[in-house]
């Protein structure tokens, strides 16, 4: 029973993949729908990373698109400039892709560390402003690098991403984040959110954990960027402007900050919804704006704020006599 419970999420994810593939083969889902699903999962990853920073650690980053850009451009540079598919035997291509995505994540993480370290010592909204500025500076810098296309955009990126890869990374992100949040590290992050000063007097090195959360969140955005680059086959600096960052912020708070379930719901719903409203043309953004205001007025904590689906909470067996009313 316990083993079944343990592997249920993995089975669920596998079933989801098989179902989507079957529907695709049967012609129920067009490649356009599958593409939207993939975008939704990539957006979920970025939002989950942002949730670790804003929702669980109580910081306020608003420049997540900058890290997606760093990850995307870095991994695309690896697969397009460093080891283009033309010089690789086909069997090696997935390996190079995998490595490039991780490199994108690591580089984004390094950027996150370098930005977080000086700005997280300070309280208040400084991180917000510094991350916003960072996103815009990165965009300006990318424009100055002709090797990655500069202001014309980076084209010719091999389209290595597919549903399988994205499902794997999506599932992996959820699993790793869940483990982190329900570990001693995650509790330290949550303590920073709840009361930074009290956290310090409980022996938590608050700066360290804020920087750690920020670095991990940025790295996840970078990984998502790598997947995105190889899904689109093309990147442009303007894809990552601060309005894109605002999108992630909206996914996070509409879903419910501090809940992984909320991030997944928010990002999925708000990626798919505007696509479904396409027949309304320009009016859909008008409706989107109003809907956002109403959602927050009637559910300020977000769709799933403060709650979590049970499989996202690791179970700990309590000793006899202490079971209590969990």
């Amino acid at each position: 029973m316990d083993t079944l419970r343990k592997y249920l999420p993995i089975l669920g994810l596998a079933a989801f993949y098989v179902l989507v593939m079957a529907l695709r083969k049967a012609g129920v889902l067009t490649s356009y729908y599958v593409q939207i699903l993939m975008f939704a999962m990539i957006n979920c990853m970025v939002t989950l990373g942002l949730n670790l920073i804003n929702g669980f650690t109580g910081q306020f980053s608003i420049g997540q698109a900058g890290f997606v850009a760093v990850g995307g451009y870095t991994s695309a540079a690896v697969t397009t400039l460093l080891l283009p598919s033309s010089v690789l035997v086909p069997a090696l291509r997935p390996l190079v892709f995998l490595v490039s995505v991780f490199i994108g994540g690591i580089v984004a993480g390094i950027f996150g560390y370098l930005i977080g370290k000086p700005s997280l010592r300070l309280k208040g909204d400084y991180l917000a402003i510094v991350t916003l500025a960072f996103g815009e500076i990165i965009r300006s810098l990318i424009r100055l690098i002709p090797q990655v296309g500069g202001p014309r955009g980076f084209s010719g990126i091999p389209r290595y991403s597919n549903l399988l890869w994205i499902v794997l990374f999506f599932g992996g992100t959820i699993w790793v984040l869940r483990n982190y949040i329900y570990s001693s590290f995650g509790r330290a992050c949550i303590a920073c959110r709840e009361d930074e000063l009290a956290a310090g007097t409980m022996g938590v090195d608050t700066t360290k954990y804020k920087v750690m959360a920020f670095t991990i969140g940025s790295a996840i955005a970078g990984v998502a960027g790598g997947l995105l680059a190889h899904l689109l086959g093309y990147l442009h600096p303007d894809q990552f402007n601060y309005l894109k960052s605002i999108d992630f912020l909206v996914y996070l708070y509409a879903g419910g900050a501090g809940s992984m379930t909320g991030s997944i719901m928010g990002a999925t719903l708000l990626t798919i919804l505007p696509e479904m409203l396409r027949f309304l043309s320009g009016w859909r953004l008008v409706i989107y704006g109003i809907a956002l205001v109403f959602l927050m007025l009637f559910r300020p904590q977000g769709i799933y704020g403060g709650k979590e689906l049970p499989f996202l909470i690791p179970k700990i067996r309590r000793p006899e006599g202490y079971e209590g009313g969990q």
């Binding site: 912020l249 909206v250 509409a254 953004l285 008008v286 989107y288 704006g289 956002l292 205001v293 927050m296």
Partner: peptide
Amino acid sequence: ITAIGVSIF
């Protein structure tokens, strides 16, 4: 977030 919503509107 409502401010963002208002802005989009």
